[in-house]
Write a protein that binds this DNA or RNA. Structure first.
Lengths: 336, 336
DNA sequence: GTGAAAGCGCTAACAG
DNA sequence: CTGTTAGCGCTTTCAC
């Protein structure tokens, strides 16, 4: 029932080490011996004890995935992408949920380090997450930073979207589709995503010869806005024609407000935002969308992580940043 | 940098065992000694090695969470609820994603057993999952079955919705709101959820003196329907007034089709379904909704699991099934 | 209340 | 190609 490597060895008539070699795919085993061992393994329904393996090898065949917000389907998409890649390599995923909280992030990273994860995929909380980089660096744990960049931390590979360029292109589309005035809703600018999208928004207005005005953008820190966004955006008596919402959640809030105010979307108000098609298209919406594919981002990130893990010895210190392209178009279905 | 229990012991001037006792909250340590040990732990930034702990104690301070579909926000809600409870107990969660695949489920369960998880929360793939129960039972791993029941497996605690009663009540509401005819869309009846909701649907028609007809319900196995549901439901020339969709994904599909066909929802077609308010209300929809709260289900399930884990010794073999109430009402926002 | 000794099940490092 | 010897860092068991 609960057999050990020793039981297998005895049954196969070899030593523990030979069994271990078979388990770890070492080629230094005679085919016939390997057969005998494999048969013993099958007969006993033997499964290696991961704790023992980790203790003696300091490797866990496990990676850590640090995510900020599981309630946001965008990040769940990343989780699915990572999981899909990692499982095909026979690795496990330890999921950590920080809820955008820096102290939880610190704790998560320490826990993962203690668990001897072989690598980490990390969506940092924001700029201050840089302080936590050392937790990973000290142990030389291969790491891929995801979606958000931290300032002054070029120690890690990264997978991000080209937020500035995409926000600019999206805003130009918005201007074309909606006319003026357009406004922007942004989150707390503690993440590179918000910062870059804001820059792109300004780039577009600039290129369109619309002089910048601080009123053009508002910032809403909490995920759920506490006061009406559309009203706060409105200044002067010319009704807003278009809104750039920095992410899916903000866009949803604007959409709800518009519906509540009997403003037809997109006829009388165009909402442009970033997101991805909901795989199940749970509910329809009408958005001008810069499509991100979080599943792909997660998958690519995991892929890059594994090339690091598998070639850890020949690490020359260089790091790559992968910029995932963004497709812009009208979408008649749900965003996510 | 990487200190062990021995380093702590040396620094505190005690033996390994005393440190271990402090770590495990044993009361058999003199307060003063405890102080010294705690200081040494802090000074060294000592973190216990989980692999060593697991190896020597056969306990991992970790639970397994087996989920069928991460792309469905309903199950993500469960994950969030479980995670929230478990982390406050200082435990970790190993997430397994089966994608409704029985062989992946088998594999997941074996992996969790090998990892010495202290408990499992399990959304089974369906009726045939009963075959996998032994994997957990053999090792006496406390387990809570979630959302779906397996036939002939009363070995586990369970957290489910009262699907039959809720489906009946929901259908009665639907009949009142929409009039006749109403139809039902169901999934593959390999899960208790589908079976029970179908029974509830029939109960309601029965009680309303509408003689049952096999055409009243159709079954769509894949998550995304391959052919138009509404067209397949339509029989005769009286247009359908209401649809009971067995879950959120099916409801979304029906909703999309209605919009595409210029059928106004809910004015000309009422869609009744099960779901829960999207925490971020990403996009609005108009449904007659039997509200489930997956976060609460996950949270409650974890709670029950921990009472088992903590009182494993005095297990009298009895098992509890928790039936989570369902609230029925019109919802003007997104379902999930 | 504290310590010494003996593993938990595996792999690293060396022999042969 | 295969085996032997030592641990990995903790907890268990039993002393005192």
């Amino acid at each position: 029932m609960k057999s050990t490597i020793h039981d297998v060895a005895k049954l196969a008539g070899v030593s523990n080490m030979t069994v271990s070699r078979v388990l770890n795919d070492s080629t230094h085993v005679r085919p016939l011996t390997r057969q005998r061992v494999l048969k013993a393994i099958a007969d006993l329904h033997y499964l290696p004890n991961p704790a023992a393996r980790t203790l003696s090898s300091s490797q866990s065949r496990t990676i850590g995935l640090v995510i900020t917000d599981l309630a946001n389907p965008f990040f769940v998409g990343i989780v699915r992408g990572v999981e899909a890649f990692v499982r095909q390599r026979g690795y496990g995923v330890i999921l950590s949920h920080t809820e955008e909280d820096l102290s939880r992030e610190r704790e998560s990273l320490h826990t993962l380090r203690a668990a001897k994860v072989d690598g980490v995929i990390w969506v940092p909380c924001g700029d201050e997450s840089t302080d936590h980089a050392s937790i990973l660096i000290e142990e030389n744990i291969p790491t891929v930073v995801m979606d958000r960049l931290m300032p002054g931390a070029p120690y890690f590979d990264a997978v991000i979207s080209d937020n500035r360029a995409a926000a600019k292109a999206l805003t130009l589309h918005l201007l074309k589709a909606a006319g003026t005035p357009v406004r922007g809703v942004f989150g707390n600018p503690i993440t590179s995503v918000v910062q870059e999208r804001l820059l792109g928004f300004r780039d577009a207005l600039n290129e369109s010869n619309i002089p910048w005005n601080a009123d053009f953008a508002i910032y809403r820190n909490p995920v759920m806005p506490e006061s009406p966004i559309l009203a706060d955006l409105q200044s002067g008596n010319c009704p807003i024609k278009g809104v750039l919402a920095w992410n899916n959640v903000a866009a949803a809030a604007v959409f709800r407000e518009a519906i509540a105010a009997n403003i037809r979307v997109p006829d009388n108000l165009v909402i442009a935002t970033f997101g991805n098609p909901d795989p199940y298209q749970v509910t329809p919406g009408y958005f001008l969308l810069a499509e991100q594919d979080p599943f792909q981002m997660g998958f690519s990130g995991a892929q890059q992580l594994f090339t690091r893990i598998e070639h850890e010895s020949d690490d020359d210190g260089s790091r790559k940043t992968f910029i995932i392209p963004v497709y812009i178009g009208f979408r008649e279905h749900a965003l996510q």
